[in-house]
Computed example of a mutant assay.
Amino acid sequence: MTYVVTESCIRCKYTDCVDVCPVDCFREGPNFLVIDPDECIDCTLCVAECPVEAIFAEDDVPAGQEHFTALNAELAKQWKPIVERKDPLPDAEEWAKVRGKFGELKR
């Protein structure tokens, strides 16, 4: 099983999760992070660190967001690893509570 970054991360991109990942499995896109399922060791450390509760075990991804499992795998092959914490996006606080942000995802 792997962990999956879901919709809540879009347009926020808090990187608290990156700091605690022992295997550097996060990949960074323009306004979203993903987890490389081939690198994730299922340690669960990232889950508690995410301020927008965007990270779930593959089996626990919320209903309606199951497509994020395949999306994480796809984008992990395209995006570069992120290994250090960065500032969130400038308007992250405004977007943190917004739902239905999939259309905002930049690849």
Rank of each mutant, 00 (worst) to 15 (best):
K80A: 15
K97T: 11
G64R: 09
L89Y: 06
C50G: 10
F68S: 02
D38Y: 11
A70S: 13
T15S: 06
P62M: 13
P90Y: 04
Y14M: 08
P90D: 13
C25H: 01
G103W: 03
D60Y: 03
D87P: 11
V4M: 01
H67C: 00
H67Y: 15
V20F: 10
D36H: 02
V47F: 09
V4E: 08
D60G: 01
D38W: 13
K101D: 05
H67K: 14
E84D: 12
Y3D: 03
E53K: 07
R85A: 09
T2I: 01
L45P: 00
I55S: 09
V23Y: 03
V52R: 01
I82G: 00
V4G: 06
P51V: 08
I10K: 07
T69K: 14
P30E: 15
D87S: 10
A63R: 00
L75W: 03
A96S: 15
V61K: 05
T15M: 05
A92V: 11
V4N: 03
C21E: 08
K86E: 14
V23N: 01
P90S: 07
E58D: 13
C50N: 10
K97V: 07
M1T: 12
N31W: 00
K86A: 05
V47P: 11
C40V: 12
C9W: 00
A54R: 04
I10P: 06
C40N: 06
D59F: 03
V61W: 00
K97E: 08
V18N: 09
R11H: 11
E93S: 09
L75Y: 10
A73D: 11
F56L: 05
T6E: 12
E58I: 09
P30V: 06
L89N: 09
V83M: 07
R99W: 06
E28R: 13
C40T: 10
A57I: 01
Q65S: 06
D36I: 08
T69R: 14
A76I: 14
P88I: 05
R11P: 01
R27S: 00
Q65R: 02
E39T: 13
Y14F: 15
A76W: 10
V47C: 02
E93A: 12
T44M: 12
T69M: 03
E74K: 06
P51A: 11
R85V: 13
E104F: 10
V34P: 03
D91G: 00
E94R: 14
A96Y: 02
K106D: 14
Q78E: 15
G103Y: 05
F32H: 14
A57V: 02
A70K: 14
E58S: 12
C40L: 06
G100E: 12
F32T: 10
V98L: 05
G100Y: 13
E7P: 13
F102I: 14
P22C: 03
L45C: 01
F102S: 08
D59H: 07
V83R: 13
C12A: 13
I10C: 07
E49V: 03
I82K: 06
C21P: 10
C25Q: 05
C9S: 12
K106C: 07
G64S: 08
I10F: 06
D59W: 04
F102D: 13
P30I: 02
C9D: 15
D24V: 00
E53H: 12
E84A: 12
T44E: 15
